[in-house]
Amino acid sequence: MKSIFDYIAGIFKGVWSLLKGMTITGKYFIRLDKIVTQKYPENRKKLKMYDRFKGELIMPHDANNFHKCNGCGICEMNCPNGSIEVISDKIITSEGKSKRIIGTHIYHLSMCTFCGLCVKSCPSNALAFSQEFEHAVFDRNKLTKVLNNPGSSLVKDLAE
């Protein structure tokens, strides 16, 4: 007898759970304002990417053209596919000591897989990812970029 009750109760329980699922999809079906799809080329002007989105590698510069890179080359060593080249330079400080600074920080966008190891391993937080993702160009030489702005220098040098 108990098995018969279990059978009938099972049918009602099953139907109830199916109806619960259908209510959820039914609600989605009528709530057209909740649509998450973005129409990309049309909304280009107000399109906002997310903070953790990895667009392309940049070296943030402040208003006085200062960056934080001291040219240590750890990013170059950590890059798995060799898309970073650090060419360092040497200067003589006012105390007469020789000091290493960054000459050119070259970034090959064409080889980058956007793994983010360079940003993670940078000891002085000099690198970051921008939100820019429209990388298409007509000449592949344009994909090789120099990250430090011309005439920029390290933040600490300001005190000296």
């Binding site: 999809t25 989605y28 079906f29 057209l32 909740k34 649509i35 998450v36 799809t37 129409k39």
Partner: peptide, 13 residues
């Protein structure tokens, strides 16, 4: 279209 609306998408447009 129905599938898209039930998954909060737009579908072919």
């Amino acid at each position: 279209k129905v599938c898209a609306f039930m998954q909060n998408r737009i579908g072919p447009n």
